[in-house]
């Protein structure tokens, strides 16, 4: 009995996860359909870029600054023990640009922008504002979802580039002060050993994560039901699903891209 109940529970969890993944995939197809030819609200895109990208700059810069410092503080012992000071720039750059930067900034972005989007669309859904748009012959996907998806992808790519730069700047400063690794040694090692593919991987990952956060938050927002508690559930589900998806995609992309 307990076994069958366990299997039934597992089955229902699998079915729910499949339904949600399928729903998000359908939404993604709907977005893609409206991109060729472009059919979306440009004013809403401008508003989203401002609120999602520009206004997230502060939190990303602060995170990046601390990440750079922590990176050097953690590496300090080993760098010192094995006499690898000349490679600090390469180490910090590789870890930040290839892995830590895109994932960490995506998680911060998901917490700030993804959660806000799920709450905003969820509230619009439960207060009939989405139906209000339909009644005005406005397609909610073109008006609400496409601008948010584009804005999140563009914003996260830009924020990741800026954040990576800030993290490396703070790492080079702390390296200079604590380990006496001169600036030109740090940047020389970084620029010499990192390849264009490393930078491209960072940008591709950021774009991918931006798309994941956008589609997940819009999907959960638009499928909200059950009033204010429903909005809370949507925000929660959106943040958790985005984080899980980011880690899964990061694993596979690292596996594929090396």
């Amino acid at each position: 009995m307990a076994l069958s109940e366990g299997i039934a529970k597992l089955g229902s969890v699998f079915l729910a996860a499949s339904a949600q993944t399928g729903g998000a995939a359908v939404l993604l197809c709907s977005v893609a359909k409206r991109l060729v030819p472009p059919r979306f609200d440009r004013e809403e895109l401008r508003r989203c870029l401002l609120s999602m990208g520009y206004q997230s700059l502060g939190i990303i810069l602060a995170t990046a600054f601390v990440v750079g410092i922590i990176l050097v503080l953690q590496a300090y012992v080993f760098i010192d023990r094995y006499g690898l000071r000349s490679q600090l720039g390469w180490g910090a750059g590789f870890v930040t640009i290839r892995e830590l930067g895109p994932v960490l900034f995506a998680l911060m972005f998901s917490g700030r922008v993804g959660a806000y989007t799920a709450a905003e669309l969820g509230t619009m859904q439960v207060t009939d504002q989405v139906d209000g748009l339909r009644c005005l012959a406005i397609d909610p996907i073109s008006y609400l979802v496409v601008p948010r998806v584009l804005a999140m992808i563009v914003s996260l790519v830009c924020l990741t580039i800026i954040g990576n730069t800030m993290a490396l700047l703070s790492a080079s400063l702390v390296g200079d002060v604590l380990l006496e690794v001169e600036q030109h040694t740090f940047w020389g090692a970084l620029l010499e050993r990192l390849t264009p593919w490393d930078y491209l991987t960072s940008v591709l990952k950021a774009g991918l994560f931006g798309g994941i956060i956008a589609v997940t938050s819009c999907y959960y927002g638009l499928s909200t039901s059950g009033g204010a508690p429903g909005v809370g559930r949507s925000v929660n589900a959106s943040v958790v699903a985005s984080a899980v998806a980011i880690f899964v995609v990061d694993f596979f992309s690292t596996f594929v891209a090396g």
């Binding site: 207060t127 009939d128 504002q129 139906d131 209000g132 339909r134 009644c135 005005l136 012959a137």
Partner: peptide, 18 residues
């Protein structure tokens, strides 16, 4: 259907104001 929407105006139960 969108053309039909244009001919309707609806006031929703909970206002649906932006």
């Amino acid at each position: 259907r969108r053309r039909a929407y244009r001919r309707c105006g609806m006031q929703f139960q909970n206002d649906a104001l932006f």
